[in-house]
Design a protein around this nucleic acid. Structure first.
Lengths: 256, 256
DNA sequence: TTAATTCGTTCGGTTGAATCGAACGATTAT
DNA sequence: ATAATCGTTCGATTCAACCGAACGAATTAA
């Protein structure tokens, strides 16, 4: 039957429409059918069901994602066990350090920012809530990796690699595993311009009572202000205190 | 062929799974198939595609919604034209009044909270970001309705009704239309315990340069503290100032 | 103003993906 | 140790997904 490029499950097609509407704010039926290589009538057919279910809305004859996603996103975030308590602690950390404080968790082998709190001098990094980022070149990412089984870490590295985003990025597996070992012994992870030039960070992992990793909290700022000494001497203790509070609250919810 | 209850589009089935996972945090294949009246193998089939595309994740053998929804939700919110500027103004309003300040927009005939800022004495109402709420019994909702064409308002009331959530809720269409007329003349909308007993609110609409409604901002608090006089004398002006700033920024983005 | 595109939408015939039930091994409860 | 329940796989059947054609509406070009 010649070339039939649209040999795809219906589910993937629906989610493909959602993905296309993530990239472009609003799309018409024809634009969408071109982009996904499906018939115009097929695109219309699926847009119609998405519209009926309230997942897309129509502006004139353009379709865009509805705010239902905002509700689902907030819901999903609120279900992360440490979210409530960790948010409070991250706010306090930002106030105490005047820097940027972050809460992040691992999902699907990537790191996801759940919450940011900006202190008075906080840098404004390009890290929107909900974005997925690699773990190997972030302070919180290395803190999280340090608490995963080696097998799991290897599987993550197989899947996502160790892309180089700055001259200091760790791109060698053995180097990373050595670093993770050091993080386990000292209790915190440090990022020396490994993600972005000029930016330092320090993070600690948050553990459940069974030792499984729940997420990480970190402080980030310009490398001039966040010297390695300042981070290890001052911020490691601040983070450790927050870490304790969060872990206690998660493991003993009756204290909350 | 006897009873076949699952006469449904595949798209609706996929979105039905997402909806089921909104209600319950994590579900297994069998639980989901029971809930949606589909075969176990069918539930598994769709969960698998959702998993492949990263929209659900597996904990052991339970499935739950992934944090991709958090990213999509944030993205969707950030695309609302007034969001950036209005957020700043809502923060200022909370600081100036020490009450709860809110930004909301209309979508699909309902109101959606986009942002909340809590002043020092702010009440903690059950209004999570992204939740859809009726428009007829909220200050911001009436402010928005007052700027829609009568035809559109009627269609919204047809679809969603005027449910009574307190003794003061406006449940009569004519009463509502009279109120909307008054709101248009005075420029702001007031909520006197129409949604929740003991809670007052005041809101102004935000308009585009073509006169179309973009959303509303409001201040809410206990009825003892927010007397009608206090709201009309003090808060109406505060809201009006924020309204002007937001409208100027939206209509002249070069000032931003 | 008119003509020509381009758009979203509808519809019916065709086909292949969605669906189910049965069966599997793994896990858990009894 | 046994029974029950779970997630997962697989093949046969069928019905929903899919396409292309055609429509009117809206926009653009002439």
């Amino acid at each position: 039957m010649g070339t039939n490029p649209s040999k795809q499950k219906t589910g993937k097609k629906i989610l493909g429409i959602i993905n296309a509407l993530r990239k472009d704010e609003a799309l018409g039926v024809t634009e969408l059918s071109d982009r996904l290589n499906i018939a115009k009538s097929t695109a219309h057919y699926h847009l119609d069901t998405l519209h009926e279910e309230g997942y897309v809305v129509k502006d004139d004859s353009k379709y865009r994602l509805s705010l239902q996603f905002l509700r689902i996103g907030e819901l999903t975030r609120s279900r992360v066990p440490i979210f409530e308590t960790a948010t409070e602690e991250v706010e306090k950390l930002a106030g105490r350090t005047n820097e940027l404080a972050i809460l992040a968790v691992e999902e699907q082998g990537m790191g996801v920012y759940l919450y940011k709190a900006a202190g008075e001098n906080a840098i404004d990094i390009d890290a929107p809530i909900g974005r997925f980022a690699h773990l190997h070149n972030r302070a919180y990412g290395k803190a999280i990796l340090s608490q995963l089984k080696e097998e799991r870490v290897k599987s993550i590295l197989d899947e996502h690699g160790l892309p180089e985003t700055s001259a200091q990025t760790i791109t060698d597996r053995d180097d990373l595993f050595n670093e993770l070992e050091q993080i386990r012994t000292q209790g915190f992870a440090i990022n020396r311009e490994e993600s972005i030039e000029g930016i330092h960070g320090i993070a600690v992992p948050i553990l459940d009572n069974d030792g499984s990793i729940l997420g990480g909290i970190s402080i980030a700022g310009p490398s001039e202000r966040l010297s390695v000494e300042k981070m290890t001497d001052d911020y490691a203790d601040l983070l450790s205190r927050s870490q304790n509070i969060i872990e206690l609250t998660v493991q003993h919810p009756e204290f909350q």
